[in-house]
Simulated scan of single mutants.
Amino acid sequence: MRSVELFAGGGGLTLGTHKAGFSTEVVAEWNHWCCDTLRENRDAGYPLVKGIDVREGDLRRIDWSKLPEGVDLVSGGPPCQPFSGGGKGNAADDERDMFPATTEVIRELRPRAFIIENVRGLLRPGFSDYYNYIRLRLAHPELRAAHDESWGDHFDRLQSEDTAARSDLQYKVLPTLVNAADYGVPQQRWRVFFVGFRADVNAEWHFPRETHSAAALRAAQEDGSYWDRHEVARKHRDFRLRTARDSNTTLSPWLTVRDALVGLPAPGSTAVLNHVPQPGAKSYPGHTGSYIDAPAKTLKAGVHGVPGGENMLRNVDGKVRYFTVREAARLQTFPDDYRLHGPWSEAMRQLGNAVPVDLASVVARSVRDRLNAATFRDNRTTRIAG
């Protein structure tokens, strides 16, 4: 199935959609370091990015009309800074808000489905109207804002259209908040996914159910199976993950930093890509690192001084150090043979902005399966009618 990737970054969504069976034809990304990562892996023959057309620059300047019709999927993660808790929270008033541009691409390509991802901050109460505005814009991509029309006025018009029975290009949009740790990613990373299917596609889709839980990890720590599997000394087995009372013990255990780093040699090994140590890590209140026997905190695109110390490893002895690029890539479930281009700070920025590959694959595979099923139903109906 054919797909197009917007705001591709270092390739998390691209790799995930390829694993799920989509063939990404064009990836759009403005950051030069990210584009070099994509091109370098493509030119080296890495199979999951084989043959991709990397368009570096502003996606609003790409002539999408030259792409052959019949795109099945548009995916992407517009810049999160307008909605991130670490930013100014200017939403529509932030020039980096690329949801309107995303909708324009969907309008032009008319894909059968889309997967759009962003930060949990988008759900903050202060953004509630704009969040609903985004959902309606994605649902009605042909209803463009008029010249000098405010987003509030456009929102009113979209609401009126959404409750009317007209026949513009429409998508059925299902927004879902998920924690990547619940899907086998060794990192607590909350994200909002907008998954939409074109109205003429009978997808019968729901968001994939969780496969992993905090309670199952705590149970494995309590019965000793987690510690035995990693051959952890008894003096270091006191830690127990905190869990919610309703967490499901029947699922697989959340994966931890220790799980993610299995098989990696000590930082500095030249046998492993991007595994160079980075000095200077320090622990202080609010900056304590990710504990080795729990899922990592959310990796961030910043580097030194990131709030919460998300880019540091905290070992059982309390000592901290920065994750190498390869270790951070493991936490984002990037393949070990996928090279991140650029110095440590730029590579970490690519990873901090990325969608975990395995989470992207789970979501994209569920979309592909429903598109296949919808195609089968449509073809079967056509044969019976004929």
Rank of each mutant, 00 (worst) to 15 (best):
P295R: 04
Q221N: 04
L217T: 06
A244R: 15
T333P: 12
P265W: 06
Y291D: 06
T324E: 01
H304Q: 11
N274I: 14
R321M: 00
V320P: 07
N248A: 06
R229V: 01
Q332L: 04
D337R: 13
P265T: 02
V257H: 02
V325L: 03
E222P: 07
P307K: 15
S290A: 04
R326Q: 10
R234Q: 10
E310K: 02
V276A: 11
F334T: 07
A294D: 09
P277T: 08
N311R: 14
A219D: 15
S213E: 04
A215I: 11
V325N: 01
D336I: 11
P335V: 05
V316T: 15
R237T: 13
S247T: 09
L331R: 03
L241V: 13
P295D: 01
A329L: 02
R258T: 03
N311S: 12
R234D: 13
L251Q: 08
A214T: 07
H275C: 09
G289L: 09
G224C: 10
R314S: 03
A220P: 12
D337M: 04
P265M: 07
S283L: 11
A329H: 00
K297M: 10
A260N: 05
Y284G: 09
A219Q: 13
P277F: 05
G305F: 09
K297Q: 12
P253W: 01
D238N: 13
K282V: 14
A260I: 06
S247D: 08
D228S: 12
N315A: 11
P295F: 03
K235N: 09
K282Y: 00
Y291G: 11
V276S: 10
I292K: 13
T243R: 13
V257K: 07
A244W: 12
A216L: 13
K282R: 15
D337F: 08
D336K: 08
V320Q: 06
A214G: 13
G305Y: 11
E231A: 15
E231S: 14
A281T: 14
D228E: 14
S283N: 05
Y338Q: 01
V320I: 15
A301Y: 03
T256G: 07
P279W: 14
V272Y: 03
V325C: 03
A219L: 14
T249N: 03
N311P: 09
D228W: 04
S252H: 13
K235H: 10
K297P: 07
M312K: 15
S213C: 09
T288G: 05
A260Q: 07
A281C: 09
V257P: 08
A296Q: 10
R229Y: 08
A266D: 14
L331M: 06
L241K: 04
Y338C: 01
K319L: 00
K319M: 00
D293C: 05
V306L: 15
R240M: 06
P279S: 05
S213W: 06
W227D: 05
P343L: 00
Y291L: 12
A214Q: 08
D228T: 10
T298M: 12
A329Q: 03
V306C: 06
W254N: 07
R237W: 03
D336G: 11
W227F: 14
F239D: 01
A294P: 14
R218C: 06
P277M: 10
